[in-house]
Every structure is written in structure tokens, then in C-alpha cells.
Amino acid sequence: MTTTLLEARKVEKRFGGVQALADVSFSIRRAEIYGLIGPNGAGKTTLFNVLTGIYAADAGGFMFDGAPLDGLGPHQVAARGIARTFQNIRLFANLSVLENVMIGRHVRTRAGVIGAVLRGPRTRAEEAGIERRATELLDYVGIRGRANDRAGSLPYGDQRRLEIARALATEPKLLALDEPAAGMNPAERAALGRLIEAVRRDGVTILLIEHDVRLVMNICDRVLVLDYGERIAEGPPPEVQKDPKVIEAYLGAPHAA
């Protein structure tokens, strides 16, 4: 087992005239919290979408856990061990909180139509396991008390936590979080930071898109900075923060929000 979990090799993605990702390369070590930052429209979410198979890369690709991800669909990427959350929360809003997490277990369980219909001892054991694990995960992210509520009825911060629980249910090696702190108050952000660190301690590598500078500085081991789809800096947060190119991207350039 190598120390590198994910390696991006010259990943490129265009949307018509927009170069969303230009020759982006980087590598993430196991059990690392790796930050991905950049001004609005820098290509961060696009990188997630290409990584998780929602879009195909125009050139380049990813090596994950010793094998390429090229050509895999999103469900296959999930099976390989990458789980994600979405910038614009995508829960199964009308299902219960518990069901959301149970659905996350799909990829690690087996029962098919025949198993479901006959419901033999094996299927029953599997179902019990799914529910048990889902409940544990709700506990883990701190929203177990809302298990039977409609997912869409949760407050914003709890919805973000639920998305993390659902992603963890797939037993990922890499958890990719797209702006998980968006819409949270400072106390919730601090708690989120602790949660992310706990997940890492349990052996899951984290790829984190985040605009909240404090959170990034506090928990990331290394940070990659994108601007107009290009990699402009990488390194430990304090160094990156001092990098003139980064400062310019955020402050000097007119397109920064």
C-alpha cells in the first residue's frame, strides 16, 4: 500500500469556451485532510464532478488507490471508495433522515429482488445491519434524535451533517466535501471542524472545498489553490496564505467575489 491515495494527472475539462480545469495535477496522501480553495468559478466543484464520474475529463485522469478511475460512472466510483457531498445540498428530501443514511449502505450490501421478496435469514440480517449502521452514523454526526424526521425539514447545518453521514455510510476511503460549512454559524463550523477531524482519525482521507479561511487553516494539512481552472499554489496553509499569487487571485483579480 502506497502512501498516495489519490493522484490527479493533468486533468482537463472545458465547457464550451470556459476552461474549467486546465492541466490540474496533485496527489493526496492517505489519512490527510487536503483542502481545495479558490475564488468563485475557479473549478473546484468541476474537479469533484470529474473525480466522481459525473463528467468525463477531456484529458488526463485520476489514479485512486492504485488503479485508474477512467471511464467509471458515478456509482462505480462510489463502489471504489469515493463518497461526496454536494455544494447545493442534495438529500433525498422527502425521505426520512434514517432512510437517507440507509440508502448510503446500498453499495456495500447485496440483497436483490429475490432476496428482498423471500427475505430469508441472510436478508434479514443484512437489513438489521443496515439500520444499525445507519443509526450509528446518525449518532456519530450528532443528529440521531431526528432519525424519523423528513430530511428536508432539518435545519441547514443538520442537513449538511446528514449528507456527511450518508456519504460515510458508503464506507469511503476518500470523503470529498463541497463547502460543508456554507450556511453554518461559527459554533456549527467549529463542531463541523471537529467532526471532520474525527472522520480522519477513523482513517478516512478528506478532500475539502471550503471558503471559510479559518476552518481551512485549522484543519487542513495541505491546500491546493485553483484559479481559472489552473493550479496556482499548493502547500501547508500558512505558506499558501502568504503566496503572492494566491493573494492576487483572491484580492487583486477583478473576478474574485
Binding site: T52, I54, G73, P74, H75, A78, A79, A83, R84, F86, R90, L91, F92, A93, N94, L95, E99, M102, I103, G104, R105, H106, V107, R108, T109, R110, A111, G112, V113, G115, A116, V117, R119, T123, E126, E127, I130, R166, A167, A169, T170
Partner: peptide, 25 residues
Amino acid sequence: LQDSRIGRAWEAVREDETAARAMGI
């Protein structure tokens, strides 16, 4: 069927296909 892994996967597809795929369905 409804109360099974398959039934839940159908629910996921109905609710949000993109999220369902990202969850490995």
C-alpha cells in the same frame, strides 16, 4: 420489495438521481 434495499434504491432514484448515483446506486 418496497421495504427492502431495492425499494430504497428506487426511492433514491425518484428523489434525486444524481445523488443516488453518487451513493453507488
